[in-house]
């Protein structure tokens, strides 16, 4: 069902853990499947993401996308990190089964939520960042295209 890359990131998740006194923390959940993802960002004065950690209560795809997404934002600028979509994460994982596409949204949204938290804490506005939804399922459709 899952690609080798997904299995690899599931079995050996990168950046799993917490950052104490993180610059930004974002937690998002999918009410439908009940999964929860939390991202911790450590952002330096130049706006570079120095470190990133995650904790995930979720399916294999959720764990793997958490791991891959954190790898992809590490060392990036805030603006670069914002451009990392769930599509990009999925591609980096060699794809996900159709029913699991929504899981990758969790990672994208959790990063956005952590950045929003960082912006709020620092009283800044990050261009192009919208207030994250608490439940990422809201906008989503039940995929049923026969």
């Amino acid at each position: 069902m899952y690609s080798e890359k997904v299995m690899d990131h599931f079995q050996h998740p990168r950046n799993m853990g917490e950052i104490e006194n993180a610059s930004g923390v974002g937690t998002v959940g999918n009410a439908k499947c009940g999964d929860i993802m939390r991202i911790f960002l450590d952002i330096d004065d130049n706006g570079i993401i120095r470190d990133v950690k995650f904790k995930t209560f979720g399916c294999g795809a959720a764990v793997a996308t958490s791991s891959m997404a954190t790898e992809m934002v590490k060392g990036k600028s805030i603006q670069e990190a914002l451009k990392i979509t769930n599509k990009a994460v999925m591609e980096a994982l060699d794809g996900l089964p159709p029913v699991k596409v929504h899981c990758s949204l969790l990672a994208e949204e959790a990063i956005h939520a952590a950045l929003w938290d960082y912006a709020e804490k620092n009283g800044i506005v990050i261009e192009g960042l919208k207030k994250p939804k608490n439940d990422i399922h809201e906008g989503e459709d039940e995929e049923e295209d026969y």
Partner: peptide, 8 residues
Amino acid sequence: REMSPLYA
């Protein structure tokens, strides 16, 4: 559980 934001 180590990985879970709920357990933490």
